[in-house]
Design a protein around this nucleic acid. Structure first.
Lengths: 154, 154
DNA sequence: CCTTATCAGTTTATACCTAAACTGATAAAA
DNA sequence: TTTTATCAGTTTAGGTATAAACTGATAAGG
């Protein structure tokens, strides 16, 4: 590949921007993921479990499919993650018709109230490299991207 | 948690923004990852392998540690991913002093020239929800975040 | 009533990723 | 020279994620 020659062509340039954005995004995400897991380790919670905890805690009651949709993961994945969380005694899974209704146990609520404020604070610190205005900008750009892509997939 | 009451407090609000940013970011990243893998499936390549292919192809020769640093992943992970890519005949791993020097095989170069332009085009389409100006803004914000966090970790 | 479709969740095989402990080689210090 | 430190890469155990095939229950159509 010949960077210097092709980058002067505008159409190539735009394509490059896409790849650059992908690289930046995935690097930052990976870093952020690792740091979050390290931070949550103190309470024996993974970032995935934390996300599930927040979703159930704020939208209870939820079914597994609804949860998977909210988290943008497959339902097969939910089976595994929720299985472990049930073992740990953080959630109830009650069969109801052909659905399973998810709620937090008292132990789950305890964890929720303990960990959510800490993690909020931690995530705020992760984005300290941007001022408040820039943070809102970033949120807005991500919102636009998601809306557009959702619209594309129908 | 009582959303409506606590969100009026400014300090709480800022912390919320951090959590919101994290959620948006991870949802978009997951979506993007899934779509990229689906797109690359045509050539039997995963997005991880693609990232490795690009790094080696553009920075050859590289050691495994250098590659891990560029991709922001652990060296243990590289051992596994590179092992598979070596089996597939895409890369050479030549022991040199106490390092292993990575280069692409002719088959690897073939794949590189076949897949990179397609994936560039695909990634460009992933960010079409933003105009060129907004894409540059996003890139800039991500760059700032990474620089700040790198500086923090020292 | 019986057949067929749909739907929620599970299972399986495979890949990715981490942290932490380990190996073996080179380099530095005693 | 012997010991100790460091460094690149590997291994292990465990969690996360997917796609695709499957199960079993409910719903719809014949």
């Amino acid at each position: 590949m010949n960077d210097k020659e092709t980058s002067s062509l505008p159409s190539r340039h735009e394509e490059r921007l896409g790849l650059l954005l992908w690289f930046r995004l995935s690097r930052f995400y990976n870093q952020s993921l690792r740091r979050s897991n390290a931070h949550l380790k103190e309470w024996g919670v993974t970032i995935t479990q934390f996300d599930v905890l927040v979703q159930i805690g704020t939208h209870e009651p939820l079914t597994q499919n609804e949860l998977a949709e909210k988290l943008f993961v497959t339902k097969g994945n939910m089976t595994q993650v929720l299985g472990r969380m049930e073992e740990l005694g953080w959630i109830h899974r009650d069969q109801e018709w052909r659905k399973k209704v998810l709620t937090l146990t008292s132990s789950g609520w305890e964890l929720f109230h303990l960990v959510v404020p800490r993690q909020e604070q931690f995530q705020a610190s992760q984005f300290q490299g941007l001022n408040k205005e820039e943070q809102k900008q970033l949120l807005d750009l991500l919102r636009k991207l998601q809306q557009y892509n959702e619209h594309m997939e129908g």
